[in-house]
Simulated scan of single mutants.
Amino acid sequence: MTTQHQHLVCGHSTAHDCLAFADAGTATAAAAEIRALAAAQTWGEARQVRMTHLWNPAGPEYHEPEDGYADDKPFDITKVGAVEDGNWPPIVSTRAFTVLPQDLQDRHGKRQVTAHDGDYLEIAVAAEGELVAELRERRYEVTRDDALINLLDGFGLNSPAA
């Protein structure tokens, strides 16, 4: 059993009706990128959003101006193909594979396989108390933030709060 200090955020992922975990610092930065892209008013603005934790689904490698996505055209994040298809942002429940110790993944989670979006770790919401207690015994700091977890999963992208 390893012990370390790491700050995790957890919350109820509405998309998969399970508990999801993410590194708090990375989660906050990725959420800022999602909010910045969602706030873009034009395709030009969307293309200029810098991403360091995610990839930009509105980037020129995906949507060329000459293909009808001119810089001055109105931008709606919910109309971007990768967002419509559920490929962006990536499933938040996949992050548990990298932030949770393997023994806790095995004990509290179940690997779910999806045909298009990759595997994710399904952790019952009812397991939260026990799992968080075990993490805290290992010196993890754990904060509950359902809104952040769901934003990382793409929920609320079409609302002003995104």
Rank of each mutant, 00 (worst) to 15 (best):
Q48F: 00
L157H: 04
F155Q: 15
D153S: 14
L157S: 07
T26H: 04
S13C: 14
E137C: 01
L151Y: 13
R107N: 10
R35S: 10
R50P: 03
G68K: 13
G44F: 06
S13H: 07
E137L: 01
K73P: 00
G68Y: 12
G154A: 12
P57G: 09
S93R: 12
P65E: 07
R47K: 13
G11M: 01
N150T: 13
A30Y: 01
Q6P: 00
P90M: 04
Y62P: 03
A147S: 02
A161W: 04
K110R: 13
L131V: 05
L121E: 14
R136Q: 07
A126L: 14
V80Q: 05
C18N: 14
G129E: 11
Y140E: 03
N158K: 05
P101C: 06
D146I: 04
D119S: 14
R47W: 01
L131W: 10
T3G: 08
L157V: 02
A20F: 06
T143R: 13
P57W: 07
H12G: 00
D67I: 04
R107G: 09
R139L: 04
E128M: 12
L100C: 10
D153F: 12
A24C: 09
K110A: 12
L131F: 05
R136I: 02
D145V: 05
L104V: 03
T78C: 13
T114M: 03
L121V: 14
H5A: 00
S159R: 11
P160Y: 06
P74L: 02
S13T: 05
G156L: 11
K73H: 05
G11Y: 02
A36I: 07
V125A: 15
I34F: 07
W88A: 06
H63G: 03
D76K: 04
H16P: 08
H53G: 02
T52E: 14
V49T: 05
W43S: 15
G11L: 01
Q105P: 02
E122I: 03
E122Q: 14
T42K: 00
G44R: 09
A39R: 03
N150L: 09
Q41K: 09
L148F: 09
A115T: 10
Q4W: 01
R35F: 08
E45N: 08
V9D: 00
V142H: 08
E141S: 07
C10R: 10
A40N: 06
N158F: 01
A115H: 11
V99P: 09
G44I: 01
D117N: 11
K110E: 13
G11E: 00
T98F: 13
A20I: 00
L104A: 00
A40S: 10
I77Q: 01
V99Y: 08
D67L: 05
E137Q: 12
N150P: 10
G81K: 05
E122N: 12
P65S: 12
V83G: 07
A126W: 08
